[in-house]
Amino acid sequence: MNVIDMMREKLAALEPVSIDIIDDSAKHAGHAGARSGGGHFRLAIVSPRFAGCRTMERHRLVYDALGPLMKKEIHALGIDAKAPDEK
Score class of each variant (00 low, 15 high):
81 A>Q: 05
43 L>C: 10
41 F>P: 02
56 M>K: 08
8 R>T: 12
53 C>N: 11
61 L>H: 06
2 N>I: 05
19 I>T: 13
58 R>K: 12
56 M>H: 12
69 L>C: 05
69 L>R: 00
4 I>H: 10
25 S>G: 13
52 G>K: 05
36 S>R: 14
35 R>P: 08
1 M>W: 09
65 A>N: 06
51 A>R: 13
64 D>G: 08
21 I>W: 12
17 V>K: 03
66 L>E: 12
42 R>G: 10
80 D>N: 13
87 K>Y: 11
62 V>M: 04
7 M>G: 07
8 R>Q: 15
71 K>W: 07
58 R>S: 09
37 G>M: 10
55 T>Y: 08
83 A>L: 12
36 S>L: 14
48 P>L: 03
74 I>R: 03
85 D>I: 06
48 P>I: 01
15 E>R: 09
49 R>Q: 11
31 H>W: 03
65 A>C: 05
39 G>W: 00
66 L>Q: 04
1 M>D: 11
26 A>P: 03
38 G>K: 05
13 A>P: 01
15 E>D: 14
37 G>P: 08
12 A>E: 04
66 L>A: 11
55 T>Q: 13
2 N>D: 15
39 G>Y: 04
51 A>H: 07
47 S>K: 00
82 K>C: 08
35 R>D: 14
62 V>C: 05
53 C>T: 09
14 L>T: 00
13 A>F: 00
44 A>I: 09
57 E>T: 07
41 F>G: 03
67 G>L: 09
75 H>L: 07
84 P>I: 11
46 V>A: 02
61 L>M: 15
75 H>I: 09
82 K>P: 06
61 L>K: 10
40 H>Q: 09
35 R>G: 15
17 V>I: 13
74 I>C: 02
65 A>F: 05
64 D>T: 12
77 L>N: 04
81 A>T: 09
6 M>I: 02
42 R>S: 15
25 S>H: 09
4 I>T: 15
85 D>W: 10
13 A>G: 00
9 E>N: 08
67 G>R: 03
23 D>S: 11
38 G>D: 08
57 E>K: 02
24 D>P: 04
70 M>D: 05
76 A>R: 02
7 M>D: 03
61 L>E: 09
14 L>W: 01
34 A>H: 15
21 I>Q: 11
78 G>H: 14
35 R>T: 14
81 A>I: 06
9 E>M: 09
41 F>H: 07
12 A>S: 08
66 L>Y: 05
29 A>H: 06
87 K>T: 13
20 D>V: 14
72 K>D: 15
74 I>Y: 04
51 A>V: 13
47 S>N: 00
87 K>I: 15
58 R>T: 02
32 A>H: 11
33 G>C: 12
16 P>R: 00
61 L>W: 04
50 F>S: 06
18 S>V: 01
13 A>D: 02
6 M>C: 09
86 E>L: 04
62 V>I: 14
8 R>D: 04
56 M>P: 05
76 A>N: 12
27 K>D: 12
15 E>T: 05
83 A>W: 03
76 A>V: 13
53 C>E: 14
27 K>I: 08
51 A>Y: 07
3 V>Q: 02
48 P>N: 10
